[in-house]
Structure formats: structure tokens, C-alpha cells
Amino acid sequence: MNDTGQQTALIVGASRTIGLGIAAEYLRRGWEVVGTVRGEHRTGLHELAETSGGRLTVERLEMTDQEQLAALHDRLAKAGRTLDLLFVNAAVARGDLPIGEVPTGMFTEVMVVNALSPMRAVDVLGPLVRPDGTVGVMSSSQGSVSRNTRGGQDLYRASKSALNQLMRCHAARYAEDSRTFLLMDPGWVRTELGGPGAALSVAESVPGVVETVERHRGARRLRFLDHRGETVPW
């Protein structure tokens, strides 16, 4: 919460679709929002900032670049930004190849973007979150090992399972941390990643994601939840 009494969220990966929707939903709820985009090009987040009355700040961040992560931390710390929420939303998918056909470079890229980099963001930016705040990371039900009865999307599934495991490692390592840690499944959403045949629109998924995050504020221990607030099995 800042000096004006408004709560503040940092949304990593907010340029479009679900990330942009989350930023917009927190603005609707009266929060101040810092949202990150990759590169220099104009995005939907810039357009949203222009109508936010100064409550949305756009920051440039390539999440896979450790120097940029550190620089963002330093900029926010220098500006006196204290976060009530850090939410990391970033993922790529590179088709539906059987794992034996996945090139090594593709495997490395997807694992770095979907698993390693979100955890680096949690490590680097997490100290900005208040002791009673929340750290959320966007996962997927496809990262659930017990739900995988049909296969497919081998690499994407593996990357999300790795992310889930790394979040459990983080929560266990910092078991005395008073903050809440959440892995979120937004459902099957019509995005570039989810495809046009997905069951949910961004507008149908995002309010549930945000409501679930807010409802579990103060819960402390790590939870894996979906946009309806239901527990996703590991």
C-alpha cells in the first residue's frame, strides 16, 4: 500500500490478453498498477495507461534478462514502490511435438521462459512485496502430473510442471515467509497460446483469477488454484 492508501500490483507480462486483462481488472478495483512489456513497441498496456488517470505505470522488461530484472527492482525500490501483489504472467508454447522430436534449443527456450525466468522474477522482485502481500505466478492445469491422462503438449506440460516444482521449492525454502504464494490456472483461454477453440474468453477468465488471488490473501502457504478458486491437483 502506498502513501495514498492505494494498493499496488506489479504485473510482469501485461502487454496483452490475460496479463493485460489482469492489469485492467486491478485498475477497476482501484489499485495502482505497474505493468511490464517487452521491447519498445506500443501495446495495449500503453493504451490502458493513457486512460488510467496516472494509476498505471508501464515498465520495460525482458524477463529472461537478469540485468533487466535487477534494474527494474532498483528503479522501483528507488521510487519507494512497495507492492501488495507481484504477479508473474509469462509463457510460450512451441507446438505439439512428441518430446523425442523437440530440438534442444526449443527445449531450453521454453524451460527458460516458462520455469526459470518466472522464478528469477520472484527471487529478484519478491523483496518489494509487503510482509502481508501476495506473490502469484501463472501456471496451468497442464502442469498437473496427476491430471495428465491424455498426453500431448509434452514440452509445455513439462515446463509448467517444472515451474510448479520450483515454486514448491521456493515456498519450502522460505517456510517462515509471511507472504502468500499462489500458482494460478486461468483455465483454457482463447489467446494465441490457448487457440481459437478454447473454452473461455479473457473476460471470462480474468475476474475469477483476480478474485481468487484476493480471496486467498493472507493464506501464507503455497496453493495451486484455478480461476474458479478450486484446488488443482499436483
Rank of each mutant, 00 (worst) to 15 (best):
L182D: 00
T191M: 08
E47D: 14
R217M: 09
T212F: 08
E214Y: 05
V122C: 06
E192R: 13
H73M: 09
F107P: 00
D185V: 03
G126Y: 00
E62A: 13
I18N: 01
H227K: 10
G194T: 05
T134P: 01
G229P: 02
R217H: 13
R150H: 15
R120N: 13
S15Q: 08
A49D: 04
T104W: 02
T149W: 01
T134Y: 00
A49P: 01
L183C: 07
V12C: 08
V122L: 13
T8L: 11
L163F: 07
V34F: 12
R75E: 13
W188K: 04
T82S: 10
A9V: 08
E59H: 10
V210Y: 03
R60P: 02
E214L: 15
R228C: 12
P131G: 03
R173M: 10
A23R: 01
T149N: 01
D154V: 05
T82C: 09
N89D: 12
L182G: 03
V137G: 01
V112C: 01
G151P: 04
T57A: 13
H216N: 15
K160E: 09
V135E: 04
T17P: 00
S117L: 07
K78H: 14
H73E: 14
G218W: 01
V232A: 04
L155A: 07
T191I: 04
L166F: 11
T108E: 12
I22N: 00
V210D: 01
D123V: 10
D84R: 08
Y174K: 04
P207S: 12
R147S: 15
E62G: 06
S159C: 09
P98Y: 14
V33W: 01
T191F: 06
V202D: 09
A79P: 03
Y26L: 11
I18Q: 01
L72I: 04
G195L: 11
V92L: 15
L76W: 14
L128I: 10
R130P: 04
T191L: 10
A175E: 13
Q153C: 07
D123H: 11
K160W: 12
N148Y: 08
N164W: 03
G195A: 11
R38S: 14
L193T: 08
Q68Y: 05
E214S: 07
G195T: 05
W188R: 04
T104N: 02
E101W: 09
A14I: 06
T36K: 02
R147F: 14
M111G: 06
R81E: 14
P127K: 11
T8Y: 08
A23Y: 02
A70K: 07
E176R: 05
